[in-house]
Design a protein around this nucleic acid. Sequence first.
DNA 1: ATTAATTATGGCACTTGTGCTATAATTAGA
DNA 2: TCTAATTATAGCACAAGTGCCATAATTAAT
Lengths: 89, 89
Amino acid sequence: MNKRQKSSIERKLIFDEKAVKAFAIHLKKLRKEYKCTQDQLEFESGLSLSQIARIETAKINPTLSTLIAIAKALEIKPSELFNFELPDK
Amino acid sequence: MNKRQKSSIERKLIFDEKAVKAFAIHLKKLRKEYKCTQDQLEFESGLSLSQIARIETAKINPTLSTLIAIAKALEIKPSELFNFELPDK
DNA sequence: ATTAATTATGGCACTTGTGCTATAATTAGA
DNA sequence: TCTAATTATAGCACAAGTGCCATAATTAAT
């Protein structure tokens, strides 16, 4: 099999790894402050534990719904999920 | 062709339509307050206009990176994107 | 040092977010 | 009313988020 052919058109994808990383660290800190395990968060949020782990290790770029589910589970305002310093670029 | 077969296992998907809708309304309001067109926002954020339109019409559930790109483009703090009332459930 | 609890990884299937392009629909300006 | 500007929709291709399952790795308790 040939290598998968790259599209001739360069698609610009936006994935701010640094911001995702900063968010990951913040979330993990928040969760611990609330004495919550990933397992509990799974239960409270309805998200899967593997997903939560992947978010906290910055493997993925979660969606709005996911963020809101987490905030609800932690009983905090969604805006609190963003109380962290964004890397400059 | 047969209809696509449903997986035997019921996958629970989380997509909080009401929250996404509330966010959409809030974003559109914010953008207008900043006298910003979708076209300008496309330029400033690097996101595609079609994507912005889909977000503002609550067609999609944007990702964290997308939200941050929008906040940066509007020169606001990401938490401001969440200054809206979440529907109760 | 063992064991239990917690967190992280990996793979698969499926869904969906995104870019790109084009076009339609709506709104604003003349 | 025309016209231009703005916003919304649609379809395609591809990337990536998520659930579920299993297992490995790490950390905490005893």
